[in-house]
Design a protein around this nucleic acid. Structure first.
Lengths: 335, 335
DNA sequence: AATTAGCAAACAAGACTAAAGAGTGCTAAA
DNA sequence: TTTAGCACTCTTTAGTCTTGTTTGCTAATT
């Protein structure tokens, strides 16, 4: 395992690289971090850290750059998660006070706050629908051939959809349908809406396929619909020096544009609330130059969606994770 | 005025430049376009076209590049608007067949189609709310302290908003409120919801400010809310050579991120359905390197929103305008 | 055994030069 | 008015040299 000085050297190199984006030399850390040894000693340590794969060298006579493995060790073992200033705390608190009526808005505000404080781009997605339980379905006639269906779930998610008919429908019909749907679907998780259930509904309400069909189809569609992905601060990334490489910049825009990829990243991850994917760790070619930190945004154990920060591998993990932890505490009512 | 050969030269230069993105030399157009003269003659014409400001020269001994003024003349006088292939027509027809329930979806699908066919980035926005007339307001109780308000307008726009209360409300209260709101607002254009009207509502329904206040506030908010802007194919731009300049690429991402700027461009424009802004013509510093073609998307004279194509000044105006005109015809039911 | 000083070697980055190639503008002739 | 011919301009690319940074190694020191 690493002795203390090697850990210090690794930490110094990573932090220095996060600040400067330039390969770090033995001399530069000797000056800024007080390690009680000479630059030659540091060079020896650097050589060893390189041997075990924690550091890379752009070319033979240049300083060192952390590898994904190096960042990983840093994130797992060395990182401080209280890297947050009083001003930042104040700013976050204020923004999170905003009253919202829909949980998606809360996710958006949180994502926006994180983006502002960390200066990275964020992507966010609403809570997964499949596992949510239908609490109530309401049908409202909006005209003789148009109806609004509103579906409420246990986590407070509200889905609305407009349904159009090819023939006139009456208030009475709507009410009957509404009763049937509630009867059958209330208390069910969304993923349970399957073929047999659909057929049952078709059978029960024989009076007009023209009426029933669009209702079932549209409700299924809106429930299965992928959650929208919201982007915040896409332009912020371009302030960073790594985006001076045209190829990196191009990849970045491409990645943000590939909603499925983003949804995939946001929905994967382990049981923890915060997951860190460093460059190639994500095992997606497109993401090899980027790191993503995802944050499962919860109140109690209600899933409110996931927020991801995407930036260069040289991301300020300490700041990002500190901010996320603070927000998590805050949302759960801790002082 | 320009004689015929000068027009041909201008057209050839612009089309060649649109295709190659390289300054155009007298020789290159002599070879590809059959002008019945020598390269020296073309050079003379080019010099004159430059004198009247239709062409620019990156440096003394390079070929010519069209200026904004040159593109303007081309768009206004020389452009062919039937530059669309059978495959493209087929593709567009198919995609526009998709059934939609909300007009915003139609705008999105159309914007997506345009982006796919032209390979440019599109931005789109829903119809302006201010001038729309309220057709119906429905309140639906979703729980003892939560209500959904649905507002329908004459153009078919539907706005929904969830309203939360600090105290329990009854079905009866909701109905009374609903009646009052309809009574007062039905038939009114949205921009007419002003202070006196609000006060009247406050006065009429004295029973609880806790109930009335959030309703009025939230309805006002949702109606005044800026329409969302949808982006399609942001990454496509990066295939173009002008985006190899880091500064241009950066500006582009910035422009797309500045929603107000985009909303401004989409909502400005004259009576025509198609408006073309070439580079500096838009009089916005940020847009000096880009051209925007906006398309007011209508069925009959119902405004369904505006779609904008944004790309380099060297945009294929002919293709873009041809596609827009075809879509416009198609949406209005012409074969 | 660990640390350090000292120094040669590697290499990037920038400045400068030279040569090649493309394209124009001008002059004089058709 | 058009054209041929040619000098001139300017970009682009490659090549060379210089400078400065940083390493890795060796040998001495603690």
């Amino acid at each position: 395992m690493l002795d203390d000085r090697k850990k210090q050297v690794l930490q110094a190199i990573i932090e220095e690289y996060i600040n400067t984006a330039e390969p770090v030399s033995s001399n530069s850390i000797l000056q800024k971090y007080d390690l009680d040894c000479s630059s030659a000693t540091i060079r020896n340590d650097m050589a060893e850290l390189e041997k075990i794969g924690f550091l890379d060298k752009p070319h033979t006579s240049s300083g060192r750059v952390p590898s994904a493995k190096g960042y990983r060790f840093y994130v797992d073992e060395l990182l401080k998660d209280d890297n947050i200033s009083l001003e930042e705390i104040k700013y976050i608190s204020d923004k999170l006070e905003t009253k919202v009526n829909e949980i998606e808005d809360l996710t958006k505000i949180t994502a926006n706050t994180i983006s502002e404080v960390t200066h990275y781009t964020t992507v966010s997605i609403g809570p997964k629908t499949e596992t949510q339980i239908i609490k109530e379905i309401k049908f409202v006639l909006l005209g003789s051939r148009m109806m609004l269906a509103v579906i409420l779930t246990d986590t407070g998610l509200v889905k609305e959809t407009i349904i159009k008919f090819d023939e006139d429908v009456t208030q009475k019909q709507i009410e009957t349908m509404n009763y049937m749907f509630n009867n059958k679907l209330k208390g069910q998780p969304i993923e349970k809406i399957d073929r047999p259930l659909e057929e049952y509904l078709y059978d029960e309400m024989t009076y007009s396929v023209n009426v029933i069909k669009p209702v079932i189809e549209q409700i299924k569609k809106v429930l299965e619909e992928d959650n929208k992905i919201y982007l915040e601060g896409a332009n912020r990334a371009f302030e960073l020096p790594e985006f001076n490489s045209l190829e990196v910049a191009k990849n970045f825009v491409n990645v943000l544009d590939t909603k499925e990829l983003m949804a995939d990243m946001l929905n994967s991850g382990f049981a923890q609330d915060i997951n860190v994917y460093i460059g190639e760790e994500s095992e997606k070619e497109e993401l090899k130059d980027f790191s993503i930190v995802t944050f499962k945004h919860k109140v109690g154990n209600k899933d409110l969606g996931t927020i991801g920060i995407i930036g260069p591998k040289r991301m300020d993990y300490s700041k990002v994770i500190s901010v996320m932890k603070y927000i998590s505490k805050k949302l759960n009512g801790e002082k």
